[in-house]
Simulated scan of single mutants.
Amino acid sequence: MIALVAPGAARADDAPSADLRYTTDIIGVAAGGERRGVRWMGRLDLDLDSGTDLFGVAGAHAHADIFLLHGGGFSAREAGDAQVVSNIDAPYAIRPFEAWVEAPLGGGVRAKAGLIDLNSEFDVQSVGALFLNSSFGIAPDYSQSGLNGPSIFPVTSPGVVVAIERPRWTIRAAMFDAVPGNPDHPHRTLPGPVGRGGALLSAEGEVKVGDGGELQLGAWYYTDRFARLDGTGRGRSAGGYVQYEQVLAGNEKTGGLRGWLRAGHAAAEVNDIGMYVGGGFSWGTDDLSYGIAVAHARLGDPALRAFAAESMPRRRAETAIEVTATRRLSKWLQVQPDVQYVRHPSWGAAADALVLGLRLHFAVK
């Protein structure tokens, strides 16, 4: 699961606005996986922004994103991978994805409250936003934690975010309801009851490094305990991550080379994925860009033993390699051919998969 909106992307202009976006993938397994097959899936978003100075408060604004999802299930039924090769792959739903109010508190401090996409504030891989694989949005050591994931795509939960922003560094802290939506009813429109599973606490700091570099350090923690994978009671779910990205050459106007590396760890006693390492490179401008990236997710020892105890032995790691390119054909249309090779999908539950896809982005403002 992963969000598609980068930090600040939904920030309001001076006047109220409404934008309509549609992202669609035509994607198929050319070899391996669970089975060969082609699927059409998509995400239609209606973004509503209030404009600034909401309720007469300077700089305050509100934002809502209502979406429709269709055609999901490609990774579960065709590719067979655990990391999810398309970041719009999700069960059919029509629901509010975000609905929040944000206001400056003075001194470079801002606060946001409501239905919030955690990935718009935390574990944002800005270079990775080019790619389709879900691990390059929010990594699976974080995204696959909790009872229904954290508050990210495709279902969010109520939360509060406070950020202190300075020219060279930023610190963020947040508290979210720990169970977004209803895990037993993924198609439901309205959020589930609040407080069923405690809270998810998130914190992150980022600092500018030299010329064109940025270092990110983050941590997360669930207040409620989870069943241990070895069946010996309950344990804490927590994790941390580090990310570094750097402009290596050029710039975005004439063609820039950017790279990033992200590593994370989760408590293996209660989470299948104990470690993740990923990263890659992108080259180009807003109108034409290319990229290559690798996502490597590793099972913890308790998960490996649990699979073996159920007579389902697994490989230690699943690795996805993605090569992609984007071309803007007009103000409202962007095309993106994509190739992914997944080694040991779901840690060996399916054959190595070659996945070919074409993404189309439509935007009306």
Rank of each mutant, 00 (worst) to 15 (best):
A60V: 09
A58N: 12
G72I: 08
Y92Q: 10
V57R: 08
R39Q: 02
F97A: 10
D45T: 02
F97D: 07
A76P: 01
H70F: 13
S75P: 02
P96D: 03
S86G: 12
D81Q: 11
I26L: 13
V57C: 04
R39E: 02
F55G: 14
N87S: 09
L46K: 03
A93F: 08
I88D: 08
A30W: 13
L68E: 04
D65A: 12
A79G: 14
H63P: 04
A64H: 12
V57A: 05
S86T: 13
F67H: 07
A62M: 11
L69C: 11
V29L: 07
A90C: 12
D47V: 15
G80Q: 10
G56D: 13
F55N: 13
L46I: 09
A31N: 15
A79Y: 13
L54Y: 13
G80P: 11
G32V: 12
G59C: 09
L48A: 03
G28F: 04
E98V: 03
D89Y: 06
L44S: 11
A64V: 14
L46Q: 04
A82I: 04
G59E: 07
E98S: 00
V29G: 02
A93S: 08
I27W: 04
G51C: 15
N87E: 03
A99E: 03
S75H: 06
R43G: 00
H70A: 11
L54K: 11
G42T: 07
D49C: 12
A62H: 12
G51D: 15
D49L: 14
L44T: 14
V29M: 11
W40F: 06
G51M: 15
G80M: 13
G42H: 03
A90T: 09
L48Y: 00
W40S: 03
A30N: 14
H70E: 15
S75V: 09
T52A: 00
G32D: 14
W40I: 03
R35S: 01
A31I: 15
D81M: 06
R43K: 05
G28Q: 01
G28E: 04
A64F: 12
R77T: 05
V85A: 08
I66G: 01
A64W: 13
G33I: 02
G59P: 05
H63L: 02
G56V: 14
M41A: 03
A82K: 00
L46D: 08
Y92K: 03
S75Q: 04
L68C: 02
A99K: 06
D89T: 08
M41C: 05
F67T: 02
D53R: 01
I66K: 01
L68V: 00
G80V: 11
F74V: 05
H70K: 06
E98A: 03
V38F: 09
G28A: 05
E34Y: 06
N87A: 05
D45M: 02
